[in-house]
Amino acid sequence: MQTGYYGATGGMVTQFNRLDIISHNLANLNTNGYKRDDVVIGDFLRMVQGHQDTLPIPDETRAAAKFINRTMTRVPVIAESYTDHSIGSMEHTENDLDFALKSPNMFFAVQTPNGVAYTRNGSFSISDDGYLVTKEGFHVLSRDGVDNEGGILMNPTMQITADANGNLSFKDLSNEGMADNVAGGSLAIVTFDNPKFLKKIGSSLYIEERKIPNDTSSEGLAGVNLVYNSGIVAQGFLEKSNVNAVLEMSSMIETNRLVDMYSKVMKTHMDELNSEAINKLAVRA
């Protein structure tokens, strides 16, 4: 068995997967509120050592030796994938329906057909029936409406203002005598105990992903918490993607070079080493 060939094959597959993630990051360079993904590359042996207690067979036995293929222990693999939740740059839009969150691990709650989801993309609009919605048409939830799917009813004929805690108010500028602020609800802003358990579902939306399927305990959940006095809402601003184009392009070049290197190793094993082994064995025979 050619251990080098299998090692190069595994390394190439790992770099292909990494390339997919880098390409996805670059594709969302201009997506509001997008958070870049990245991976941690380790090796099979390290992963086995980290989960030795959960192996289905005892360690230090012949069965274990067969279970852990020694030719594959140093093959590079993606040990973990994660999302970088650092804040992106802020863009001043002067649009009263644009909102940005100035702290990490803070999200707007929205109602989707599949339940409550969370987003940092605060580019909102008003639907035909007068509710504050995302660009996809999902209702932005109010602080009091998280549990009962309550949206925020807007008044497009009035000026909309929001304070740093997400409390909305309306003012009728057409009548100076009635130009008092009228309370209009509050944006539902949440934070998470374990944001690593958030799963992307597209359109800059996240849901809680349970670590253990069908587990009814709280372990493995992101742990959502409603925030009241956050002080981090900026009206008229949008948070841009936190993708660094230079960093991603450098990573893409590095990944392509590694793929090319692994390809040359595989070709050497197949075309040169195999040929040499066959010729020497044939001579000896």
Rank of each mutant, 00 (worst) to 15 (best):
S250M: 12
R257Y: 14
L258E: 00
P195T: 14
N256C: 05
V246F: 00
Q235T: 11
N229Q: 03
I232C: 01
N256H: 06
E254N: 08
S251A: 12
A222I: 07
M249H: 02
I201L: 03
L258F: 03
A245I: 13
M266F: 02
S251N: 15
G220L: 04
Y206W: 10
V224S: 08
N242S: 05
M252K: 02
Y206R: 06
D260C: 08
S241I: 05
V224Y: 04
R257Q: 09
G236F: 01
G202D: 04
P213V: 09
S251R: 09
R257D: 14
K240Q: 11
I253H: 06
L221A: 10
A222F: 07
E208C: 03
Y228H: 02
I201D: 14
M252S: 01
N194E: 05
K199Q: 15
M261I: 09
G223H: 01
V233D: 07
Y228G: 05
L238P: 01
T216S: 10
K196C: 12
N242Y: 05
L258Y: 13
E248H: 12
R257S: 08
N214H: 12
T216W: 00
V265E: 09
K240I: 03
N229V: 06
P195A: 11
K211E: 15
L258T: 15
L198K: 14
